[in-house]
Design a protein around this nucleic acid. Sequence first.
DNA 1: TGCGCGTTTGG
DNA 2: CAAACGCGC
Length: 470
Amino acid sequence: MTDAPLILWFRRDLRLADHPMLTAALATGRPLIPVFLLDPETEAIGAAAKWRLGLSVADFAARLEGMGSRLILRRGAAPESLARLIAETGAAGVMWSRAYDPASIARDTAVKAMLKTAGQVAESHPGFLLAEPWQVETGQGGPYRVYTPFWKALRQRDIAPLLPAPKQLPLPESWPVSDRLEDWQMGAAMRRGAAVCLPHQAVGEAAALTRLDAFLDQRLARYAEARDFPATPATSRLSENLTYGEIAPARIWHAAMHRQDAGDSGAGKFLSELGWRDFAWHLIYHFPALATENWREDWDGFPWRGDSADAERWRRGLTGEPFVDAAMREMYVTGTMHNRARMIAASYLTKHLMTDWRVGLAWFADCLTDWDPASNAMGWQWVAGSGPDAAPYFRIFNPATQAEKFDPNAVYRRRFIAELSRTPPAEALSYFDAVPRAWAILPDAAYPKPLIALDKGRQRALDAYAARKA
DNA sequence: TGCGCGTTTGG
DNA sequence: CAAACGCGC
């Protein structure tokens, strides 16, 4: 008689290498049943992220099948789905990699309690972050609220070593039935043409590792000076792969460290940007309200505007402010947005249009294929001025000045705004294929007039802050 | 990762 | 006297 199998519950860890849970599972010697659940918590993510997750699940399933294993798909709440799988397979229990957002923590806590009550294996493992959020502490023993000291503490830690990808997994005597991924319709909520977005995705572990190597070889040396120019391919684009766990941050860490030791000048800056991702998760783990409430209470009295016709123009990339519109259209066409452009687009919405940062956050959640709830909550509150370690209220980006500085030849603006060129590039034209029909946006329409003069919008936001109710 | 103002600097 | 620098909101 063979050992009872283990269920490997994959979530945001869709890779084989550098995978602590998988390594621990293999060490048990038990047969392994890889599972992916489409549970309500996963169903709740934004349209683009859900579509992109479907691509990742398909890639990972094919990878497992190539090894002679499988990825079993089930839909429904996690506790019930896992209990049913255990009953069907006689499994000894479940292992998974930790998640750190409030909804996942609540779900996983309930699953762990259920399994332990039943005397089952219930093991959670690290791997999504460089350090567990509770492992990085200030001298006084609490969580960090400011990045620089957090970073100093993080970089002194030993980051988890690399782990080999298994060549094969021990197979169960029989497989439980699986849903078909196509039946899940993971792209159903995409209101735009996924076909436009697809060529801009690099899906799966192999693509992620290729992307990392290409970045280190071709871009790292110039990263520090080139990363702020959105027309330049200077960034790693690995946020997309990190979101789904197609690559471990520890692998990126060690690879960049190796380059730093070899004297590569951009490595330090890049490592620090990777550190920001951990910091965001550190913050949201210790302060879950960061995703929904103003971190700094002095912003509670600010007369934020809710959703509006102006906000809708912002979403559509029709504000008449070219840097902002290019940014919003880039997100529509590619599923991502350059970091500099995110700051400009977010600043314009929250300051010049005085719109509540949660309105912008919700749209990014729906449109980004690299959607990360922690980085976005931190980033939006930073721009709005309401966040930890935030920009002071008077630091309001001027999109025209920023464009002169970071897009001096208008290459980025022209790349995504067809109205600005006689012969627009393909990306600019594909925006019109990407947007919903209902928007009725045509390439031959005139480029819109600005929603508000930049100096006027800036002054309005400053006055509103000064006059806010205490 | 602002902006406007006054001061300093270097030709 | 233009451009760089420093300061406070």
